[in-house]
């Protein structure tokens, strides 16, 4: 009588991550630091986004051995990334029993037309989105969690803010629509009608939405939480900063107390230098990660 891997169970794990910080880690030592600082999950990957940018070349799923070593080092959930459309990488990650798969634009896409059909998998998926239509297409394909994309590896929050405001603005505008207008909105968003109807009725996405891409400081975390994110992913922002232990704990604290400026202030003190950053407006079109996927 036991039903494993139902959508409720997949989306339910994202509910358990809410109000928390998911940190990119590249080895056991970083994973332990992240866990000890209060991360609610870690993302195991060989190179953080800022290094992927710097190195160039094709970015693929991480070495399974490295992911396994991180699974052995911590008890919090371990996530890992597969390339967009690369369902065979996702199958490998499922065989590894990672807790969540991120079908991620940070890696080089494997399929320029199709995302992974996520329904057959027992492991839940999180996917990036820059607008409501993109979020609902991913959910229609089986994603159990959404993260706004931002522009990974830059330390620049502007794209994350744009994507969050876009998604939440589009949700708000569905609010007053009639049934006929909802059908038109579904067409305009290129999104499944049933999902558009559900969002119009509830005023929210049917799954948890985190924010990713460019978070570098406690105040960044507070900003995106106040804009409606339900938790944050921090990639390069922690382990590319001067004092990862302190910054990791500070971003956790600011995510919990995001509405209390005095607490965000206290969390922001004495952290040393933030990561080296890149202004995302100065990136060439071909250097952008957030326009990967559709």
């Amino acid at each position: 009588m036991r039903d494993e891997a139902t959508f409720k169970v997949k989306a339910g794990l994202a509910e358990m991550l809410k109000g928390g910080v998911i940190m990119d880690v590249i080895d056991q030592e970083q994973a332990r630091i992240a866990e000890a600082a209060g991360a609610c999950a870690v993302m195991a990957l060989e190179r953080v986004p800022s290094d992927i940018r710097r190195d160039g070349g094709v970015a693929r799923m991480s070495d399974p051995e490295m992911i396994q070593s991180i699974q052995e080092a911590v008890t919090i959930p371990v996530m890992a990334k597969a390339r967009i459309g690369h369902f065979a990488e996702a199958q490998v990650l499922e065989a590894l029993e990672v807790d969540y798969i991120d079908e991620s634009e940070v890696l080089t896409p494997a399929d320029e037309a199709n995302h992974i059909d996520k329904w057959p998998f027992k492991v839940p998926f999180v996917c990036g989105a820059t607008n409501l239509g993109e979020a609902l297409r991913r959910i229609g394909e089986g994603a159990a969690m959404i993260r706004s994309k931002g522009e990974a590896g830059t330390g620049d929050i502007v794209e994350a803010v744009r994507h969050l405001r876009t998604i939440n603005g589009e949700i708000k505008r569905l609010g007053g629509l009639s049934e006929a207008e909802i059908a038109t909105a579904a067409k305009d968003h290129a999104a499944p009608l049933e999902l558009v109807r559900a969002v119009a009725a509830s005023g929210r996405l049917p799954v948890v939405m985190f924010c990713a891409g460019g978070i570098a400081t406690p105040a960044d975390a507070s900003l995106v939480m106040q804009l409606g994110a339900e938790g944050v992913f921090v990639g390069s922002g922690i382990f590319k900063s001067a004092d990862p232990e302190a910054r990791a704990a500070a971003i956790v604290e600011a995510t919990t107390h995001y509405e209390v400026p005095e607490r965000v202030l206290r969390a922001s003190e004495g952290l040393g230098a933030a990561m080296d950053s890149i202004e995302s407006r100065k990136l060439e079109e071909s250097e952008l990660l957030s326009n990967r996927g559709w």
């Binding site: 009588m1 494993e4 409720k8 169970v9 959930p77 029993e97 492991v123």
Partner: peptide, 10 residues
């Protein structure tokens, strides 16, 4: 167990 063993049951 890990997430793949998560389940619903009456």
């Amino acid at each position: 167990g890990r997430q793949v063993r998560s389940f619903e049951a009456p």
